[in-house]
């Protein structure tokens, strides 16, 4: 941190503008694609694509706007760990719901 003071410029204004452009384009793609019926390819394709774009946008924001790219391992770890814990919550809750449907593991 303290020793970083000399090189804290990170990516500069052009870099920030590039990130901004990625985010706007990402938003535009999400919006357009939401009206296409991708579920006909396979069920859930729309959801998957929307979330994939959202994840990409989030990653870009975290890496460049939040400076995670230049941060210590601990910051990386806490960012990744929080999503891992979210995943635990989602996965272990949904495993109950997925298997509660009639016919699966029930009388």
């Amino acid at each position: 941190m303290a020793e970083n003071h000399t090189d804290h410029e990170h990516i500069g204004i052009p870099g920030y503008l590039a990130v901004f452009a990625i985010l706007i384009v990402g938003t535009w793609i999400t919006y357009v694609v939401a009206f296409w019926d991708l579920d006909s390819i396979f069920p859930g394709a729309n959801t998957l694509l929307a979330l994939a774009i959202a994840f990409t946008k989030m990653t870009v924001v975290m890496l460049y706007f939040m400076h995670v790219r230049w941060s210590k391992e601990l910051i990386w770890l806490s960012a990744v760990a929080s999503f891992f814990w979210l995943l635990i919550m989602f996965a272990f809750t949904m495993q109950d719901y997925f298997t509660r449907v009639s016919g699966v593991f029930s009388a």
Binding site: F92, D96, F98, F105
Partner: peptide, 8 residues
């Protein structure tokens, strides 16, 4: 909760 979840 489902029996499967209970087992896990």
């Amino acid at each position: 909760q489902s029996i499967y979840a209970g087992l896990v």
